[in-house]
Protein backbone atom coordinates (compact mmCIF):
# COMPACT_ATOMS: atom_id res chain seq x y z
CA UNK A 1 0.00 0.00 0.00
CA UNK A 2 0.89 3.65 -0.35
CA UNK A 3 0.73 6.27 2.36
CA UNK A 4 1.79 9.92 2.36
CA UNK A 5 1.88 11.96 5.55
CA UNK A 6 2.40 15.74 5.19
CA UNK A 7 4.74 15.20 2.27
CA UNK A 8 6.49 18.28 0.86
CA UNK A 9 8.82 18.54 -2.11
CA UNK A 10 11.08 21.13 -3.59
CA UNK A 11 13.57 20.74 -6.41
CA UNK A 12 17.13 21.92 -6.08
CA UNK A 13 19.62 20.97 -3.39
CA UNK A 14 19.27 21.10 0.38
CA UNK A 15 21.59 24.10 0.47
CA UNK A 16 19.89 25.91 -2.44
CA UNK A 17 16.27 24.71 -2.40
CA UNK A 18 13.89 25.76 -5.16
CA UNK A 19 10.27 26.71 -4.51
CA UNK A 20 7.97 24.16 -2.90
CA UNK A 21 6.14 22.25 -5.70
CA UNK A 22 4.25 19.88 -3.38
CA UNK A 23 3.00 20.96 0.02
CA UNK A 24 1.50 18.99 2.88
CA UNK A 25 0.22 16.07 0.80
CA UNK A 26 -1.46 13.33 2.83
CA UNK A 27 -3.44 10.39 1.48
CA UNK A 28 -3.31 6.64 1.48
CA UNK A 29 -4.07 4.07 -1.17
CA UNK A 30 -4.68 0.42 -0.30
CA UNK A 31 -2.97 -2.36 -2.20
CA UNK A 32 -4.91 -3.14 -5.36
CA UNK A 33 -6.54 0.30 -5.47
CA UNK A 34 -6.96 2.60 -8.47
CA UNK A 35 -6.65 6.40 -8.41
CA UNK A 36 -6.86 9.05 -11.04
CA UNK A 37 -4.47 11.93 -10.48
CA UNK A 38 -5.90 15.14 -11.90
CA UNK A 39 -5.09 18.79 -11.91
CA UNK A 40 -4.06 21.64 -14.16
CA UNK A 41 -0.72 21.74 -15.92
CA UNK A 42 2.07 22.56 -13.48
CA UNK A 43 0.04 21.44 -10.46
CA UNK A 44 2.67 18.87 -9.51
CA UNK A 45 1.24 15.60 -10.90
CA UNK A 46 4.50 14.42 -12.48
CA UNK A 47 6.41 15.48 -9.36
CA UNK A 48 4.13 13.34 -7.18
CA UNK A 49 4.58 10.43 -9.61
CA UNK A 50 8.37 10.82 -9.35
CA UNK A 51 8.12 10.68 -5.57
CA UNK A 52 6.12 7.46 -5.77
CA UNK A 53 8.62 6.08 -8.27
CA UNK A 54 11.43 6.82 -5.78
CA UNK A 55 13.19 9.08 -8.25
CA UNK A 56 12.97 11.86 -5.71
CA UNK A 57 12.98 11.78 -1.95
CA UNK A 58 10.45 13.96 -0.15
CA UNK A 59 11.84 17.14 1.35
CA UNK A 60 9.61 16.55 4.35
CA UNK A 61 6.96 14.21 5.71
CA UNK A 62 6.58 10.46 5.56
CA UNK A 63 6.30 8.43 2.35
CA UNK A 64 5.44 4.73 2.38
CA UNK A 65 5.57 2.89 -0.97
CA UNK A 66 4.67 -0.80 -1.22
CA UNK A 67 4.81 -0.93 2.57
CA UNK A 68 8.35 0.48 2.69
CA UNK A 69 9.01 3.70 4.57
CA UNK A 70 11.30 5.60 2.20
CA UNK A 71 12.90 7.56 5.02
CA UNK A 72 14.31 4.42 6.63
CA UNK A 73 15.33 2.66 3.39
CA UNK A 74 18.96 2.94 2.38
CA UNK A 75 19.97 3.80 -1.17
CA UNK A 76 21.08 0.21 -1.54
CA UNK A 77 17.51 -1.10 -1.04
CA UNK A 78 15.89 1.16 -3.65
CA UNK A 79 16.68 -0.74 -6.90
CA UNK A 80 14.88 -3.90 -5.76
CA UNK A 81 11.86 -1.83 -4.74
CA UNK A 82 11.92 0.10 -8.04
CA UNK A 83 11.79 -3.17 -9.96
CA UNK A 84 8.39 -3.83 -8.37
CA UNK A 85 7.08 -0.53 -9.72
CA UNK A 86 6.11 0.05 -13.38
CA UNK A 87 6.20 3.60 -14.65
CA UNK A 88 4.90 5.14 -17.87
CA UNK A 89 6.75 8.43 -18.16
CA UNK A 90 5.07 11.49 -19.61
CA UNK A 91 8.08 11.81 -21.95
CA UNK A 92 8.29 8.01 -22.54
CA UNK A 93 12.03 7.69 -21.73
CA UNK A 94 12.69 4.87 -24.17
CA UNK A 95 16.30 3.90 -24.80
CA UNK A 96 17.07 5.31 -28.24
CA UNK A 97 19.63 2.65 -29.18
CA UNK A 98 17.39 -0.31 -28.35
CA UNK A 99 14.58 -1.47 -30.62
CA UNK A 100 10.98 -1.75 -29.46
CA UNK A 101 11.35 -5.38 -28.41
CA UNK A 102 14.47 -4.77 -26.33
CA UNK A 103 12.99 -1.66 -24.74
CA UNK A 104 9.99 -3.67 -23.54
CA UNK A 105 12.26 -6.52 -22.46
CA UNK A 106 14.43 -4.28 -20.29
CA UNK A 107 12.63 -4.74 -16.93
CA UNK A 108 12.58 -8.52 -17.43
CA UNK A 109 16.27 -8.58 -18.26
CA UNK A 110 17.09 -6.49 -15.21
CA UNK A 111 15.14 -9.07 -13.21
CA UNK A 112 17.29 -11.77 -14.90
CA UNK A 113 14.30 -13.58 -16.43
CA UNK A 114 15.15 -16.42 -18.84
CA UNK A 115 15.23 -15.36 -22.52
CA UNK A 116 12.50 -17.85 -23.46
CA UNK A 117 10.09 -16.29 -21.01
CA UNK A 118 11.15 -12.82 -22.15
CA UNK A 119 10.34 -13.70 -25.77
CA UNK A 120 6.86 -14.93 -24.78
CA UNK A 121 5.97 -12.02 -22.51
CA UNK A 122 7.33 -9.31 -24.78
CA UNK A 123 5.58 -10.92 -27.76
CA UNK A 124 2.30 -10.85 -25.88
CA UNK A 125 2.77 -7.19 -24.91
CA UNK A 126 3.62 -6.26 -28.51
CA UNK A 127 0.37 -7.92 -29.63
CA UNK A 128 -1.62 -6.03 -26.99
CA UNK A 129 -0.24 -2.63 -28.00
CA UNK A 130 -0.60 -3.69 -31.66
CA UNK A 131 3.04 -3.11 -32.55
CA UNK A 132 4.18 -6.65 -33.37
CA UNK A 133 5.25 -5.47 -36.83
CA UNK A 134 7.39 -2.72 -35.32
CA UNK A 135 9.26 -4.96 -32.87
CA UNK A 136 12.63 -4.28 -34.45
CA UNK A 137 12.10 -0.55 -34.98
CA UNK A 138 14.06 1.96 -32.93
CA UNK A 139 12.25 4.75 -31.06
CA UNK A 140 13.25 7.53 -33.52
CA UNK A 141 11.50 5.48 -36.25
CA UNK A 142 8.24 5.34 -34.28
CA UNK A 143 5.44 7.90 -34.02
CA UNK A 144 4.72 9.59 -30.70
CA UNK A 145 1.72 7.34 -30.10
CA UNK A 146 3.70 4.24 -30.97
CA UNK A 147 6.48 5.24 -28.59
CA UNK A 148 3.88 5.80 -25.89
CA UNK A 149 2.46 2.32 -26.41
CA UNK A 150 5.97 0.85 -26.15
CA UNK A 151 6.40 2.80 -22.91
CA UNK A 152 3.14 1.34 -21.57
CA UNK A 153 4.18 -2.17 -22.60
CA UNK A 154 7.53 -1.73 -20.83
CA UNK A 155 5.82 -0.57 -17.63
CA UNK A 156 3.35 -3.47 -17.63
CA UNK A 157 5.46 -6.41 -18.86
CA UNK A 158 7.03 -7.18 -15.48
CA UNK A 159 3.58 -7.37 -13.76
CA UNK A 160 4.53 -4.72 -11.20
CA UNK A 161 2.89 -4.40 -7.79
CA UNK A 162 2.47 -0.69 -8.39
CA UNK A 163 1.82 0.92 -11.77
CA UNK A 164 2.33 4.64 -12.22
CA UNK A 165 1.19 6.10 -15.54
CA UNK A 166 1.86 9.76 -16.22
CA UNK A 167 -0.43 10.98 -19.01
CA UNK A 168 -0.29 7.53 -20.67
CA UNK A 169 -2.83 8.36 -23.37
CA UNK A 170 -1.71 11.90 -24.22
CA UNK A 171 -0.50 10.91 -27.68
CA UNK A 172 -3.13 8.26 -28.45
CA UNK A 173 -6.36 8.44 -30.45
CA UNK A 174 -9.56 7.58 -28.59
CA UNK A 175 -9.63 3.93 -29.68
CA UNK A 176 -6.03 3.34 -28.62
CA UNK A 177 -6.55 5.32 -25.40
CA UNK A 178 -9.50 3.09 -24.46
CA UNK A 179 -7.58 -0.05 -25.36
CA UNK A 180 -4.58 0.92 -23.24
CA UNK A 181 -6.81 1.94 -20.33
CA UNK A 182 -8.41 -1.49 -20.50
CA UNK A 183 -4.90 -2.97 -20.19
CA UNK A 184 -4.24 -0.93 -17.05
CA UNK A 185 -7.69 -1.89 -15.72
CA UNK A 186 -6.92 -5.56 -16.35
CA UNK A 187 -3.65 -5.26 -14.43
CA UNK A 188 -5.55 -3.56 -11.60
CA UNK A 189 -8.04 -6.42 -11.47
CA UNK A 190 -5.11 -8.82 -11.09
CA UNK A 191 -4.05 -6.95 -7.95
CA UNK A 192 -1.72 -4.18 -9.07
CA UNK A 193 -2.14 -0.79 -7.45
CA UNK A 194 -2.60 1.78 -10.22
CA UNK A 195 -2.21 5.58 -10.28
CA UNK A 196 -2.92 7.37 -13.58
CA UNK A 197 -2.23 11.07 -14.03
CA UNK A 198 -4.29 12.67 -16.78
CA UNK A 199 -5.84 15.86 -18.16
CA UNK A 200 -8.36 13.82 -20.10
CA UNK A 201 -11.71 14.24 -18.27
CA UNK A 202 -13.68 12.10 -20.73
CA UNK A 203 -11.33 9.20 -20.01
CA UNK A 204 -11.98 9.64 -16.30
CA UNK A 205 -15.72 9.53 -16.98
CA UNK A 206 -15.43 6.30 -18.93
CA UNK A 207 -13.46 4.59 -16.15
CA UNK A 208 -15.12 5.86 -12.99
CA UNK A 209 -12.67 5.56 -10.10
CA UNK A 210 -11.68 7.73 -7.13
CA UNK A 211 -9.62 10.81 -7.98
CA UNK A 212 -6.82 12.74 -6.34
CA UNK A 213 -6.84 16.37 -7.48
CA UNK A 214 -3.80 18.59 -7.18
CA UNK A 215 -3.84 22.34 -7.52
CA UNK A 216 -0.76 24.42 -7.16
CA UNK A 217 1.05 21.69 -5.27
CA UNK A 218 -1.74 21.00 -2.79
CA UNK A 219 -4.18 18.11 -2.62
CA UNK A 220 -7.64 19.64 -3.03
CA UNK A 221 -9.72 16.52 -3.59
CA UNK A 222 -9.37 12.89 -2.47
CA UNK A 223 -12.09 10.46 -3.51
Amino acid sequence: MIRLESVGLHYGTASRPGPLVLEDISFSLPAGGFRWLQGPSGAGKSSLMRLLHLELRPSGGQLVVLDNDINVLSRHDLPALRRRIGMVFQDFRLLQHLNAFDNIALPLRLAKAPEKLIAEDVGEMLRWVELTKKASHFPPELSGGEQQRIAIARAVVGRPRLLLADEPTGNLDDTQALRQMRLLGELNRLGTTVVVATHNDSLVERFPNPSLRLEDGRLVQNG
Partner: peptide
Protein backbone atom coordinates in the same frame (compact mmCIF):
# COMPACT_ATOMS: atom_id res chain seq x y z
CA UNK B 1 23.53 10.20 -18.89
CA UNK B 2 19.96 9.81 -20.12
CA UNK B 3 20.25 6.06 -20.73
CA UNK B 4 21.83 5.59 -17.32
CA UNK B 5 19.04 7.51 -15.62
CA UNK B 6 16.40 5.43 -17.42
CA UNK B 7 18.03 2.12 -16.57
CA UNK B 8 18.59 3.32 -13.01
CA UNK B 9 14.91 4.29 -12.83
CA UNK B 10 13.90 0.81 -13.99
CA UNK B 11 15.68 -0.59 -10.94
CA UNK B 12 19.17 -1.43 -12.17
CA UNK B 13 21.54 -1.54 -9.19
CA UNK B 14 24.65 0.66 -9.25
CA UNK B 15 26.83 -2.45 -9.45
CA UNK B 16 25.11 -3.43 -12.71
Amino acid sequence: REAIEIVHGLGAPDTY
